[in-house]
Amino acid sequence: MAELKCLNNLAAVHIKLERCNDALETSSSVLELDPDNVKALFRKGKLLSDKGEFQEAMETLKKALKLEPSTKAIHIELSKLVKKQTGDNETPKWKPKPTQNQKPLTKKPSGIPWELLLAAIVVAVGSLVTSIILSARN
């Protein structure tokens, strides 16, 4: 369970750092451990859509929607995807920027850079501290 949270947080960090391929790999790793993880499905679907892989993005987002039909963000992303497929392209809010350090998607990562691991740990600890504080108030 902790591994899933760390990997999900790491995917969020990769997205913040605009490392699309790394975020996609990390989201896929989460889905290997938990194929019904809605956060990972949503992130993977959005990333695939941004890369122009519409068919796989559609399948991934539909699976997320089936698991959580009331989540508005999934509906919004599916709507954007349909517009992209029909040629009514709006400019995506987030565009991945290629970096020199970015690895091809087909390669397995040789290791997680310590900066990203540290950032994921900070996010996880922050979430834990917040939940402890909120539960202590009740």
Rank of each mutant, 00 (worst) to 15 (best):
A73I: 15
E77D: 05
L117Q: 06
L4H: 02
L134E: 04
S110Y: 04
P35T: 13
K108F: 14
D50L: 15
L47V: 15
N89V: 07
K107A: 12
E3H: 14
S79I: 10
Q85A: 09
P104K: 12
C6W: 08
Q102Y: 11
T106W: 15
E68M: 07
A2L: 06
K62V: 03
D22W: 00
L48F: 03
K72A: 05
T106H: 15
I112C: 14
N138G: 11
L10Y: 05
P96L: 01
L78V: 10
M58F: 14
P109W: 01
A2D: 07
V123S: 06
I133Q: 13
L10N: 05
H75K: 06
S28T: 15
P104H: 13
G111V: 02
S79R: 10
S27V: 13
L7R: 10
G45H: 01
L48A: 08
K97A: 10
M1D: 15
T99E: 14
K97I: 04
S135E: 09
S29L: 13
S135A: 11
K39S: 09
T86Y: 02
W114G: 00
L48N: 05
E18A: 11
L31H: 06
A124M: 15
V123H: 09
E53A: 00
R19Q: 09
G126A: 09
S70A: 07
T86M: 02
L118M: 10
R43I: 04
L10I: 01
G111K: 10
D22R: 01
Q100T: 10
L4C: 02
V123D: 12
G111I: 01
K51R: 12
I15P: 00
S29V: 14
P69L: 08
S131V: 06
V30Y: 03
E18Y: 04
